[in-house]
Each structure stands twice: as structure tokens, then as C-alpha cells.
Design a protein around this nucleic acid. Structure first.
Lengths: 265, 265
DNA sequence: GCTTATTTTCGTAGGGTATACGAGAATTTG
DNA sequence: CAAATTCTCGTATACCCTACGAAAATAAGC
């Protein structure tokens, strides 16, 4: 599930916004030649808009972070926002990169655990926590991610962890992609699960319970022997939440087992 | 990324629709006491609506499968559709379960490969193919899936495969969840990727190329040594599509390696 | 053939979304 | 004080879902 976030007009403009607070490689004096002095004073900053967007989405859901809702929150006209941000899609990019950057991932040279698996665990933990803080992230497509400092820091960290495994460069990159796919997707599903509970005011367990009719009326034991076996052997977790947590842990551990084993052959 | 699909009013009604073509466990003569004979003749069937919805979403995107668009396609008034389907959300449930059921997964008693990994491969292949045929699936939330024959068949198959591994019932279920999470998510991302390409008329490779500025203007080598290393060692795949395919294969294989290894200890 | 019961059909109305356009307000420079 | 510049934001357009209720179609009973 995902939002649209289609094409942007000016990649250069977008990049400038994403990296607006990084003087690192200073922009080539191209855009910033705004003749500060003339003209009406802005009443907001880009950061104001982005911060409010995140806040609103956190508190009341992504839908509440509409241009109209945002404007009301900031006490300005809707169209005023377009002075600061080219479009809703770009604003979403800015919001996403901002929260991606929140993750406390050790940078180059900073101390980190010796064990590579524990280092992956940091990525996993921080990413899950990020999704938990910002449930709406699960509704945003990551196919064309914001190419900003936050996203790059995440990729850098995971690659730096896997580089030490001594795999080929290609394999290292492939492994990193596989891990992010698993971790990000699973963390996203977990967040989405809670989002649905909040939006509907009904726990997922209650939702399943409401469908008890299924087992009595429609479920055919002959057609579903494996499910029946698992059921009778008490194989189903007691709650949806527990099932999620168990499978997340299990899947990540087995994936890392597999990667570790491939190193020794 | 996902659509809304919030609460449904009558779970019983929904279940009856989902299982409408399965006489297996015949409904308790509760709803079907429609006094066929009196009243105006319906001009459509539920299957017509569902089929057209899938077709429209396949051809023109999920947004085209709106109630209005659907009605136009069927040459009826928009509100007429509500005779056949209680809401848009329920229609989506029906569409999803229908395509889930399309997967050619061996049922109980039907022949299948000896090797369990090859059996998992069938699940993986069929699921990916399903996403490819119906790219819009990647935009639909699976947190509260349609509890219909299609979804149940998928779960049944995967559990039946893993039951033979001799793990505990609980672990078998957990492993199945981990595999579906990985396969469904990765296949969904792949589909979403193509969807974005279609929607924007721009390949993902072209999109990245458009952002070349990043590397020249903003990318800081000192802050991203691992990415730099991978880059110089030619570790990046030549295309987004190739990177996807590689990481999907790699991740699934390592995950299955890990599961297999856990069996021997 | 008429009445009555039943079912399907669907127009209208209401509240939501993003954003193109252009006029007007505010501010500094010359 | 005029000119240049920049920010502000009302209006209009074209979608979305669906509650409501009136009208149309059909069959059974008499």
C-alpha cells in the first residue's frame, strides 16, 4: 500500500531542498543568489512546514497532513505553502528524509559493536523504532526514495556493516538490499497494523474474532489439512501482534544465518 | 504503501460474498432465501463487477477502478453498483481474493516436487507472477486480508510445505509467516516499481540518472566511505531491475538456507 | 387485468483532495 | 516616491465515495 508520489519537475530544485541544511558540499552559488533584501518577508521556513507536516501526520494520520490541513495548522492560506514547497509530493519527500535521518546509526569512525550481527541489529531496531514513531511511513512508497542525507546515511551504514564480511562487492550490495527489503517491509507491516487499529478503533484480534463464522460455516477441513494440523497442535500465536514479532525475529535471524553460512563456504 | 480499506459493517455479509462461488460448506439457508421471482431483474452479477474491476485496474491502474469509472465501463449508474457490493472496500476485497486464487498452487493430494525448497519456489514464482499480472496489488494493504478461498489456499499451501520439515507447530507457522512476509513484500515492491515507471512514463534508471547532480554536488565521500568503496569495486548493479531480481533471489535463498540449517541442529 | 410486494436503478447532494492562475500586499533599493 | 521584488492567498476545476429517496420493472395473487 502506498501513496502516489509521481514525477517531480526539477530534480535539482528537489535536491537543493533535501540537502538544504547541509553545507557540506556547498551548492555552486547557483540558486542561492536570492537577493535577500528586496521583497516581502517570508512568514515561515521550509523547516516549519516540514516539521508541522510530520507532527500532523504523527498525531492525526497522513491524511491530516493535507495542504489544506497544514495551512490551517500554520494559520496561513493553502496556497501560501507553495512558496516553500513545490508540491505535496516534494513535501512528502522532505518529511520522509527528515525522519530517516532520525535513526541513531553510527557514522564512519564512530564506535560500534564488534559482532556484525549486532550491528545489523542496530539498523533493525532503529528502523522499527522509526516506523513506530511515524506510523504513516508505512503508507509511503519507497520505490523512488528521497535522495537526501537521511536515506544515504541508512544505506551507508548497512553497507559498512556488510563490507567487513569479506564478500564480493556485488554480493555485499545484494545482501544489503535483501536485508533492507526484509527489515523495512516487516517494520512497515507492523506499523501499518497499528495504523489500521487506530483508524478503525478495533484491534486486529477483535477483527479476526469477528470472522469466527469462517471456521464454522465456510472452512473446509479436507481442503485445508495443514492449517487444521497447525491449529490442533496449537501452532497459532495467541495474538496478531505476537505473531508479527515472532516472525520478524525468526525471519531476520534465519536470513542472517544464511548470510553468515555463505561466508564460510 | 497502501490503500485505506477500513472497517466493514457486516462480516457475515462479506464472508458470504467472498465465498459466494463455493458451495463446499453450504451457508445455513440464512441469506439465500431470496425469493427469486418477484422484483426487477438484475442486469449484472457480482462476478461481472469484480471481473470488470480487475480488468480496469490491470489496464489503467487502481484509480481507474473507481465506482464511477466502473459504472461507466459497465454502462450503468454509479449507485447501481451498490446493489451488488456494499462498498468500495468490500469490492477491493473481492478483487484481491479473486486474483489470489489465480495462483496455481498444488492442493492437498495433488502432485508436487519432492524437494521442499522447490515447493517454496512454486509459491514464490506464482506469487510474483500474480503481482506482475496485477500490478495494483502492490497498492493494497494486506494487514486485514480478504478471508476468502484465495487467501486461505495460499496459506494452506505454504504451511503444508513447511510441515514436512519436522519443526514444531509453532515454528512451522512462524517460518511460514516469515516467508510470506519476504516473498509478498519483495514481489510487491517489484510490482510497485513497474507501476511507477508506467505512471510517470520514466524508467527508474532514468530517474536515478536525472539525479546525477547528487554525486557531484552533495555527496560527501568522507561521510560515505562504504558506498564509495562499493562504487569503485563495481558493486552496483547496472540497472534497478537487475538489482531487484538479484536481491530477491539472494534473500530468499539465504532465508531458506537458514531455515534448513535450523532443522539439523 | 389490477393490486401489491419486491427488487433494481440511479440523480442529486455534500464534503473531501491538489494545484494553476492572477491580483494584491509588503518590503527594500535607487 | 517609484520600481523591483517577493510573498500571500481567493477562486475555480475536476476528481473521489456514498446516504437518501423516488421511480421503474417484474411476478404473484386474485
Amino acid at each position: 500500500m502506498s501513496e502516489r508520489r509521481s514525477g517531480e519537475g526539477q530534480p535539482d530544485k528537489t535536491l537543493a531542498l533535501l540537502w538544504r541544511n547541509h553545507r557540506a558540499a556547498a551548492p555552486a552559488a547557483d540558486l542561492p543568489e536570492r537577493r535577500r533584501g528586496a521583497g516581502r518577508r517570508p512568514s515561515l521556513t521550509v523547516d516549519d512546514v516540514v516539521r508541522t507536516g510530520i507532527q500532523l501526520a504523527d498525531d492525526q494520520g497522513l491524511a491530516a497532513a493535507s495542504m489544506g490541513g497544514l495551512a490551517k495548522e500554520l494559520s496561513v492560506g493553502t496556497m501560501t505553502l507553495y512558496t516553500y514547497v513545490p508540491s505535496k509530493d516534494e513535501l512528502l519527500d522532505l518529511m520522509v528524509d527528515q525522519v530517516l535521518a532520525e535513526r541513531a546509526l553510527p557514522g564512519p569512525g564512530e564506535p560500534r559493536p564488534d559482532d556484525w550481527r549486532e550491528q545489523v541489529e542496530i539498523y533493525s531496531r532503529e528502523t522499527r523504532a522509526m516506523f513506530q514513531r511515524h506510523l504513516w511511513l508505512s503508507q509511503v512508497s519507497t520505490i523512488r526514495p528521497p535522495v537526501g542525507p537521511g536515506m544515504l546515511a541508512g544505506r551507508e551504514y548497512l553497507l559498512s556493516v556488510l563490507l567487513d564480511l569479506g564478500l564480493s562487492a556485488r554480493e555485499t550490495n545484494t545482501a544489503a538490499l535483501a536485508i533492507t527489503t526484509y527489515v523495512d517491509s516487516a517494520a512497515g507491516l507492523e506499523a501499518e497494523s497499528q495504523l489500521v487499529e487506530r483508524a478503525t478503533g478495533q484491534t486486529n484480534d477483535a477483527w479476526w474474532y469477528e470472522r469466527n463464522d469462517l471456521w464454522e460455516t465456510y472452512f473446509d477441513v479436507d481442503r485445508h489439512p495443514a492449517m487444521t494440523t497447525i491449529w490442533h497442535a496449537n501452532g497459532y500465536q495467541s495474538s496478531t501482534r505476537e505473531a508479527f514479532a515472532d516472525s520478524y525475529r525468526y525471519g531476520l535471524d534465519r536470513l542472517l544465518d544464511g548470510i553468515e553460512a555463505s561466508r564460510r563456504t
